[in-house]
Design a protein around this nucleic acid. Sequence first.
RNA 1: GUCCCCAUCGUCUAGAGGCCCAGGACACCGGGUUCUCAUCCCGGCGACCGGGGUUCGAAUCCCCGUGGGGACGCCA
Length: 698
Amino acid sequence: MTRRPHSRHQSRPAFSNSHASGSRRPFTSHICVSSTGRRRWSKPSSASFRTSSRTNRARRGAPRASLWLNQCEILVPRLIAKVIARFLPIHGRHRIPGRDIPAGTGELYCNFREDDEDSEDTEDLARTPKGIVLIVLSVLSVPGAAPRLIVKSSSVSVTFTGEYSMSVRLRFAPSPTGNVHIGNIRAAIFNWLHARHCGGVFLLRIEDTDLERSTPEAIRTLMEVMDWLGLNFDEAPLYQTSQKLKHIAAAEALLAKGHAYRHAKGGDASGGEAVLFRIPWDAEQVPGVAVAGPAELPVHPDHEIVIDKTGINFAQISGKGTPMPVQKCLAGFKGLEILDTAGAILLRLDDEMAAAVLAGTRRETCKGAAKLRFTRRTITYRDLVKGELTKPLDGLSDFVIVRSDGSPVFHLGNVVDDVTQQITHIVRGDDHVENTYRHLFLFHCLGTTAPQYAHLPMIVNAQGKPYSKRDGDAYVGDFRTKGFLPQALFNYLALLGWSPGDDREKMTRDELVTAFSLDRCKSSAAQMDLRKLTDINGQYLAEMPAAEFVPLAQEWAARQPWGAGLDAALFTKVAGLMQIRTKTFADIAGWGTFFQELPAYDEKACRKAFADKPVQNALAMLTQDLADTPADAFTAAAAEAAIHGCTAACGVQQGKLNQPLRLAVTGTTIGAGIYETIEILGKERTLARLEFAKQFFA
RNA sequence: GUCCCCAUCGUCUAGAGGCCCAGGACACCGGGUUCUCAUCCCGGCGACCGGGGUUCGAAUCCCCGUGGGGACGCCA
């Protein structure tokens, strides 16, 4: 399949840092891969960054698969990794799920060759933006082992180990309490984009467990908004309340396996017991958990330390030196030794004692402790957006999964539903990062592997603060009522915290899907900018075919005070004139001047514009000329001729007359071409307005 | 308070140690095209949070500050 011998490539040194081992000459091109300097890679055009039909043909015979790079363990220089990450998505649409690949056989993948002057099929090559040519040699699929992708770049041979892109499943899981927030819908968009990019599945889950605040009305609004933005989902929405039995069953299973326990936490008034999930004592079983080493924590001696099945309770020392009690999971304190002020060991928690404590048969207390000494363990996961994130277990506590009234808590429901819906990727706001550590344990104790996580940065308001209830424009529906197009909002929101890496901004939905990748998401908060949204909206509006624009504009016009029973032909003319000037549909409110008997006049501007005597004369003469024009010949051309006549006769430059004229007939200084405006207004209204305007003559 | 995260023009961003005395877009300002307004074109203004370190070389890597944010519920 790969038709060239590769010995040539293998003889090349790794290009990264190739300059360091060689001469000291500064870079003159952006990437230099040849140690001899014979070949250099020029910046490729985007046109060459594409799969050719030839490539597809060549691939046809072999099963195709691609690597889901985000799941890979990257064993190569970062530069190459990035290059491949950028490159692979281009072929996303040709992917077939990895599970269709027969295991146990080596599979040829594709055949991107190196760019070479003497090549006979140059269209076969695939280049990265950095100008590095990749050759994917093969994918090795071996039972019981992670599949491997063998990739050869221009100068270095690399191997990736990872999973194939099994069919990717994402979900948007809002709780239907009130209006959909702009940050939420952005998360929905990113989920959708990633699902579509991977040819995967996008699901909707309605987390309606908060019965008090969830309303059918809110659910309807949610659906409307999703529909408006084109966020179509692939399976019937899952209502979380319908899953309650499953949640409870999961809690029972955890209880049975000792991963959870009942406890009347915090002196519950009703006396009922909640179910708490326990961060597992043998945390090493959980992927991502590692021993960080010995650690020490000062504690306040006045606070008695209590160790029981709910974990450990001790007091940290505040800045003022007062005790600050905290409750932490026992798993955070493996090998715990409690020391007094003199450094003598007051209590040592060995595995045997821990087992008894966790079983609930033993409870330890300790007074006068000054220091906790223990083996710190941490849990780490690789966030697709934020990179590696780590949390020490001693910062974690056991948490409630079923309330004392028997209802499941968010953490449980959310995780169980993700298992039910076979979610592979969770894309959500970064206010959930802390939850992720807990959920990782839950997934494991529920007997499944956790999905991939991607935490998106927040969107903040114009003050740089998180959106709050006071921010009127934080709701998606508001953008609709403010006259924004769904595709413009979609486009703009996609650009908030993400960019394609080049200068493109106005992108179609398809372009966004193709270009999208989670690893290009930023990890810092983004501020919403209405002006930019407005600009993008204006671009969409301007490029819209008239046949599409007019009916939409008509809907908006109909809501105006002057909007009843508008003449369709007249409206189409006005729309034709105004479309390019329209930034949002809300601007249509200003079209009233074309449909009203008399518009509102900007009196101040009028007085100023009409101050000149020659202008007044010209306007008067023009009024007369237009009055003499037959109504059936009252065209833009006629208006133009009349205006020219007056300017010549009165010695007023046309540039000096147009603005006063516009004010006289429309009442404002902004608007469409004056000739067309006069034609659209018609003889009667034009004359009436010119008469009316005379009152502003000084 | 504890833990975690983040930091480039006013705003959204590009940036993966030399393509960068930092590029694009919005906004703003000026000029041109146009009968006016708008569009369009050209130009201008405008940023690497601070301090150390590593390096021949730092926006980029490391450390310390500072600032901002998040999480610490029988909310989701």
